[in-house]
Design a protein around this nucleic acid. Structure first.
Length: 278
DNA sequence: CATATGTCCTGAGAGC
DNA sequence: TGCTCTCAGGACATAT
């Protein structure tokens, strides 16, 4: 589930490696099926060891370690990946590790289910892979007019559209429901029926919720998987209004139970009273 | 181009 | 108790 706030928290958790030099980079042997590491670990080692970390960034839901030669090492956590600088939740799920000069702590990529990836891209590969054709603008940067331009002619339901990373980067299943609840928009509303004022509200709400979630270091759900770089849980789950709360009373109207529906094979949670179709 | 669907993976929980 | 089954949802390949 790591979405923008969780990945941003991971990024901030390893900022101290900026300026340090990588002294080791290796795949960690584990009993589970190996995750995807591209190119192969030996090639990654050859290209990153001895290189200085210029910047630790984020592109959508990926952590980007940019090196002095503009090669970039990416961690893509997908469902259960974590970027850690300390004791992993379970040692057997550590998949990759980096060591640094200056006495910086090692950085681990941990992934219980192993759907995530570690990969290295040169500058050209990176620009192509994450150009605006393949990845939308960051969700923290959206405006009402931008959203109207991006989605305004689509017939898709707004909740499904918000998950499309080619349109806007960073929103996932959890925050899509939370955003639409605060913006008081029905998740099944067609994009082409959404007004200019509603696009403005969605943009504002998106930024507000994601920033608040970052301030609380993301959401650790009941499965407890997500952790920050120090293996501590996030805090934003305590501020969820609708996600995974079917049957509970809506905190806004204090009257209607939260409804769960399925859209594009994913759960959506909303309040039938606060989020009208109109 | 836009949109929909199947795939990967593990562990938790349900049902028997 | 222990087995089998279903489900969770990131990104991407493939199909329409």
């Amino acid at each position: 589930m790591p979405e923008l706030p969780e990945v941003e928290t991971m990024r901030r958790g390893i900022l101290a490696i900026e300026g340090a030099t990588i002294t080791a980079a290796e795949k960690v042997r584990c009993r589970c099926k190996p995750i995807s590491i591209k190119p192969n670990p030996a090639t990654i080692r050859r290209r990153v060891v001895g290189k200085q970390v210029q910047q630790v960034g984020r592109i959508g839901k990926r952590v980007v370690i940019q090196l002095e030669n503009d090669d970039r090492l990416l961690f893509e956590p997908r469902m259960t990946g974590l970027v850690l600088v300390t004791d992993p939740p379970s040692p057997e799920h550590v998949r990759f590790r980096l060591e640094f000069s200056r006495g910086e702590k090692e950085v681990l990529y941990w992934d219980r289910r192993g759907l995530g990836m570690v990969y290295l891209l040169n500058d050209q590969q990176y620009q192509q892979r994450f150009g605006l054709r393949n990845l939308g603008p960051d969700a923290l940067e959206v405006t009402g007019p931008m959203l109207k331009e991006i989605f305004g002619k689509s017939s898709r339901p707004i909740k499904v559209a918000l998950l499309d990373q080619k349109k806007v980067a960073g929103i996932g299943n959890l925050y899509a429901s939370e955003i639409l609840h605060v913006a008081a928009i029905h998740p099944a509303k067609r994009c082409d029926k959404i007004t200019k004022n509603q696009w403005h509200l969605i943009a504002q709400t998106t930024i507000d919720i994601l920033q608040t979630a970052i301030a609380h270091e993301g959401s650790t759900l009941s499965d407890g998987t997500y952790r920050n770089a120090l293996n501590d849980p996030g805090g934003y789950q305590n501020m969820h209004r609708v996600y995974d709360k079917q049957g509970e009373i809506c905190p806004i109207c204090m009257d209607t139970p939260i409804t769960r529906i399925v859209q594009a094979q994913r759960s959506t949670f909303f309040c039938k009273t606060c989020q009208k179709r109109s």
